[in-house]
């Protein structure tokens, strides 16, 4: 367990899935949480409120902020809301992602711009806006949630190259932000059964037949995130930890359908 008592954490894309599990884990370790979802209304807001309620049930403060990370002004507004609602920021978990599942010939220009705007520029906007708050509190940690698509080809997964770029970006940040007391690392998660898995299993029907050992749970990704946010990980800098139950080790023995 990481001691995150008194810390304030912002988890993007945390109304459900991996982000929600991370928010709850950081709360369990003592942090107050800003839940962040893209849309302001409708069911996703309801999911965000539900996640915030779950954080409060753990005895921590929680607020919901919204905004498209692809838009710098909306990121700025979300960070301002965190400052106002929680009084600062120590931990930034860059978990939000948005991407079409398509092979390259089918990608429209607007798909490509959305991919880059959200999954590359968006994270940079988040860090740029969060940094002053982190500095005010003497530093903090950034954790980026990547996926195996950064290094292995997944079918119809243009998000993979964005994840690869971000793993390099994290290395950059670790060096650039060290003197500000801000650390940066990434987690490269294996197969996780979340909403995007629902699309993936359609494109890649073999997935449905994989044994349970091939999958990582959102909670397991959250455990490693909490570790990277805590003091025990102080010597890990600019790294990407692969959290996949060894799936990527098995080039010659991929888990097969039984």
């Amino acid at each position: 367990m990481a001691n995150l008592e008194g810390k304030i954490a912002w988890v993007t894309g945390s109304s459900r899935g991996i982000g929600r599990a991370i928010a709850l884990r950081l709360a369990r370790d003592g942090a107050d949480i800003a839940i962040h979802g893209r849309s302001e209304g409708g069911a996703s807001r309801a999911h965000a409120e539900e996640a915030a309620e779950a954080v409060r049930a753990l005895g921590r403060r929680a607020i919901c902020v919204s905004g498209d990370i692809a838009r710098k002004d909306e990121v700025g507004a979300a960070v301002a809301a965190i400052e106002e609602g929680l009084g600062g920021l120590d931990l930034v978990v860059l978990n939000a992602a948005r991407a079409p599942f398509k092979e390259t010939p089918r990608l429209l220009e607007r798909d490509l711009r959305m991919l880059v705007d959200t999954n590359l520029l968006g994270h940079v906007f988040c860090v740029q806006k969060a940094l002053p708050l982190m500095e005010q509190r003497g530093g903090g940690s950034i954790v980026f949630i990547s996926s195996l698509g950064s290094r292995y080809m997944n079918p119809q997964y243009p998000l993979g190259p964005m994840k690869a770029a971000m793993e390099a970006m994290v290395r950059q940040w670790a060096e650039e932000l060290r003197e500000k007391g801000v650390g940066a690392n990434a987690i490269c998660a294996g197969l996780v059964k979340t909403d995007s898995y629902k699309t993936l299993r359609r494109i890649w029907p073999e997935l449905s037949g994989l044994p349970d050992e091939a999958f990582v749970t959102p909670e397991e990704v959250a455990d490693v995130t909490a570790f990277l946010c805590g003091a025990d990980a102080a010597a890990i800098s600019g790294q990407t930890l692969i959290v996949d139950r060894g799936l990527s080790n098995r080039i010659l023995r991929a888990p097969t359908t039984e």
């Binding site: 459900r16 849309s39 409708g42 069911a43 996703s44 309801a46 999911h47 909403d195 629902k198 699309t199 359609r202």
Partner: peptide, 13 residues
């Protein structure tokens, strides 16, 4: 009914 775009995946599935 309050669905989001992600819910369509579940409904269709």
């Amino acid at each position: 009914l309050g669905a989001t775009s992600i819910d369509f995946l579940d409904i269709n599935f």
